[in-house]
């Protein structure tokens, strides 16, 4: 990993922690941005962790660009010594894979896709060397995911699977972006899963849909009443495949305001995860489904 600092105009400092994606790069970005938040540097107005980078917005009338740069570099040195342990939460996200709504949408934009003759799921399964769509879905909903960035649009989580690099799913984005994506589509681009928080344009492959709202500007849904955005960087997500009846039941629960996501508190250690990925992921599953 080699950290690269750059000014983004006179109001931003952009820091690439690593050119390539890894959990180590994400953790470094997260621990530095946490340190920036705690140090309460005057003039800093936005602290944005991303997958393998981060960005600070500041007021150069309050802190000189070079002074802030020096502060960030010193925080990087401290973050390198940190233990990479975070208190976070594990969240179960139900997914109706191969649902009729994303299917209708992907058929509508077929001419913008690499493989017009198959669905996004069939294409992703094939190029990632799975023998069937079911096997692909099993892998997608197997190992848990880290929310490594929230953004693009309101509350949209980017997620990186907690698996060996050789087991990472990789897919290209659409050749040309779609002008429509159903709200709550579970998508995929590069090595990242996402959930589209609002309906709109998008270029990620579409695998399914979740009944669980993750952004509510009206703040009417019970678990979004305190804050309209559900996800934060560092959350752990486990996808749970559901069928049509379970999806319909969950949607009815959301409408009746009875839907409550399954959430468990958890202390994550990167070191322990690295030493036994499968065992640690299993433990995450046990915490999620224990009491």
């Amino acid at each position: 990993m080699k950290t690269r600092y750059s000014f983004g105009g006179d109001e931003h400092i952009f820091v690439e922690v690593d050119e390539e994606m890894s959990l180590d790069a994400f953790f470094k970005s997260l621990s530095i941005t946490n340190a920036v938040r705690e140090s309460q540097i005057k003039g800093v107005t936005e602290i944005c962790p991303a997958n393998a980078s981060y960005q600070i917005k500041y007021d150069p009338d309050v802190i000189a660009p070079d002074d802030l740069l020096a502060e960030l570099k010193s925080l990087e040195a401290a973050a390198e010594k940190s233990e990479s342990i975070i208190d976070t939460r594990i969240i179960e996200v139900p997914v109706f894979y191969n649902d009729p709504w994303t299917h209708e949408t992907l058929m509508r934009f077929r001419e913008r896709h690499q493989d017009p003759d198959s669905t996004d799921l069939e294409y992703a399964a094939r190029i990632n060397k799975f023998t069937s769509v079911d096997e692909f879905i099993a892998a997608h909903s197997g190992a848990p995911w880290f929310v490594t960035m929230v953004g693009f649009v309101s509350g949209l989580p980017f997620m990186y699977q907690m698996a060996e690099r050789t087991h990472q799913i990789e897919v290209p984005k659409y050749l040309r972006p779609r002008t429509d994506t159903p709200k709550l589509t579970v998508g995929y681009g590069g090595c990242f899963a996402c959930i589209y928080s609002v309906r709109g344009a998008g270029g990620y492959q579409m695998f399914g849909i979740t009944p669980m709202p993750i952004f509510d500007p009206k703040q009417e849904i019970s678990y979004l009443r305190d804050f309209m955005v559900f996800f934060r960087p560092g959350d752990i997500v486990k996808f749970k495949p559901i069928d049509r009846p379970a999806y319909d039941a969950a949607v009815a629960d959301v409408e009746a305001d009875k839907f409550a996501p399954r959430i468990r508190e958890f202390t994550f250690s990167l070191k322990e995860h690295h030493s036994d990925i499968d065992g640690y992921n299993k433990k995450i599953g046990e915490v999620l489904h224990g009491n």
Binding site: G8, G190, C191
Partner: peptide, 20 residues
């Protein structure tokens, strides 16, 4: 780089500064 995508204009998804 891993995660960036194959197009030469791709990067691992990052933040965008205003005005970038």
């Amino acid at each position: 780089p891993f995660g960036a995508g194959s197009d030469p204009s791709n990067i691992v998804d990052s933040c965008y500064p205003y005005g970038s």
